[in-house]
Measured scan of single mutants.
Amino acid sequence: RTAFSSEQLARLKREFNENRYLTERRRQQLSSELGLNEAQIKIWFQNKRA
């Protein structure tokens, strides 16, 4: 289980509010910017949509 920092969570929530689905390219960008792997971001979005 991933423990996200408050900064990472704030960024993910802001991104989710703008778009509930990420393109592969956007997921790669977020992964690089947040220091998370793409799978972690993908799962976070899946869980948030559920």
Rank of each mutant, 00 (worst) to 15 (best):
W44P: 00
Q40M: 12
Q8E: 03
Q40C: 13
T23F: 02
Q8G: 02
E33L: 06
K42T: 14
Y21K: 06
R14I: 09
A10K: 08
K13W: 15
R27P: 02
S32N: 08
R26G: 04
Q40L: 14
T2G: 13
N19Y: 06
R25F: 11
I43G: 08
N37G: 11
F16D: 01
A50P: 05
E7Y: 09
N37M: 09
R20H: 10
L36N: 00
N19L: 04
E15F: 04
N17T: 09
S32F: 13
A10Q: 09
K42C: 14
L30F: 01
N47W: 15
E18M: 10
L12R: 00
N37E: 14
E7Q: 08
A3V: 12
R20F: 05
Q40E: 14
F45E: 02
Q29E: 12
R27C: 15
R25G: 12
R11G: 06
R11H: 05
L30W: 01
R20Q: 13
L30C: 02
Q40V: 15
E33D: 07
L30H: 00
A50N: 11
W44H: 01
L12E: 00
S32Y: 13
S6C: 15
K13G: 08
E18R: 10
E38H: 05
A39S: 11
L34I: 08
R11L: 06
L12G: 00
K42D: 15
N47D: 09
K48S: 10
E15Q: 03
A39W: 15
Q8V: 09
E38W: 05
L36S: 02
N47E: 13
E7V: 08
N17M: 11
Q46G: 06
E7M: 07
K48T: 12
S6W: 09
R1T: 14
K48C: 10
I41K: 01
L36I: 11
L30R: 00
K13F: 12
F16S: 02
A39L: 14
Q46R: 12
L9G: 01
Q28H: 09
T2D: 13
L30E: 00
E38R: 04
E18D: 08
G35I: 03
R26I: 06
I43Q: 13
A50R: 14
R14T: 10
Q8T: 06
N47L: 13
L36A: 04
I41A: 01
Q8Y: 01
Q28G: 06
Q46Y: 11
S31P: 01
F16E: 01
L9W: 05
K48P: 03
A50F: 09
K42F: 12
A39T: 12
R25E: 15
L12N: 00
N47G: 07
